[in-house]
Simulated assay, not measured.
Amino acid sequence: MAEQNGTGAAIRRARADAGLSLRQLAAEIGVSAGTMSAIENGKVALTVERLQQIADRLGTPRARLLEPQQVPEPAPRRDATGPGPRGGDWRRFAALDLDPGLRAAVEVFTEIGYHGATMRQVAAAADSSVAGIYHYHRGKQQLLATLMTRTADDMEWRVTSADEEGGRPAERFARMVEALALAQAVRHELAFISATELRSLEEPERSRVVAATERIRQRLEAAAVQAAADGDFGVADPRGTARVVISLCLALPHRPDREELADPQRVAAEYAEHALSMMRG
């Protein structure tokens, strides 16, 4: 364990524990994302009132944000190509196993984009040295590849598990839409990175991510065509309509009303219902 002092670092860790992005916390306490970043990086002084406001929102005692904290060392680099937890409950989400460097990369890539990010900024967000990040990650591209392949794996096994529960094709289609929308809503920061930075991803990881999305598309289209043959879907072009539904799900992280994603189960259920309405014609 490496001891890490500083109120800013303690705030960042408490925010991560609470499952909030930097932008979300900034909006909720009424400051800009830039100011929140400066607070977490120790570049601005905090008033007692502001510190209390942050503590209240994060559900933690103010004193915890003033005391030295213990930060785990980054986990050793692992192969990001391992399979997802197939056979699990696709509606249940645990935090992905991301080391501090990867969690920091999510924050930085979401805020300023892959091309604008530097390893120094990732290191600062991780409360680490640049050398410390490079010890576990070869560079910015490897960070992006790990995040995007894990996101694709997580999304695909959920859709596959939803499909494999069985039932009529229309039921399978609805569950797969729910699973896809749920993955986008719950993992919205990772999904946003995957949607906006695909062109930045190099081979062979880019082809792997594209292939996972293609397999999802094929599953949904096949179920839609079967449901139309059964008479459960009345739309003239079930294959094309399925593609529209998939596009709507993948666009979830871009919704301007991001606060709606605070209830991902409801959002996913609504998308499934809308998809069925579209398919019934």
Rank of each mutant, 00 (worst) to 15 (best):
A2T: 15
N5L: 15
G6K: 04
A10V: 07
A14G: 06
A16K: 11
Q24D: 03
L25Q: 01
E28T: 06
V31C: 01
A33W: 09
A33Q: 09
N41Y: 11
G42Y: 07
G42D: 06
K43P: 03
V44R: 10
V44Y: 06
L46R: 02
L46M: 04
L46E: 04
V48M: 13
I54H: 01
D56I: 08
L65V: 03
E67Y: 12
P76T: 04
T81I: 09
D89H: 04
W90K: 03
A94P: 07
A94K: 15
F109H: 03
T110D: 11
T110E: 13
T110Y: 10
I112L: 12
G116Q: 08
A117H: 02
A117V: 08
T118N: 09
A124I: 10
A125P: 00
A125H: 06
S129F: 10
A131D: 11
I133C: 01
Y134T: 09
G139E: 05
G139C: 10
Q142F: 08
T146P: 02
T149C: 10
T151R: 14
T151I: 07
D153I: 15
V159C: 05
D163F: 10
E165K: 14
G167S: 04
R168E: 11
P169I: 03
P169M: 06
P169E: 01
A170P: 00
R172F: 01
R172E: 01
M176C: 04
M176V: 01
E178P: 00
A179N: 00
A179Q: 00
A183H: 09
Q184H: 09
V186Y: 00
F192K: 15
I193R: 02
I193H: 01
A195N: 09
T196S: 14
E197I: 11
R199G: 13
L201C: 08
R206K: 11
S207K: 13
V210D: 05
I216D: 02
I216T: 06
R217C: 13
L220H: 05
L220K: 01
V225Q: 08
D230K: 09
A236T: 13
D237W: 07
A242F: 01
L250S: 07
H254Q: 15
P256Q: 12
E259I: 12
E259A: 12
E260R: 13
D263T: 12
D263S: 13
R266K: 15
A269G: 06
A269Q: 07
E270R: 11
Y271S: 08
H274V: 13
L276T: 08
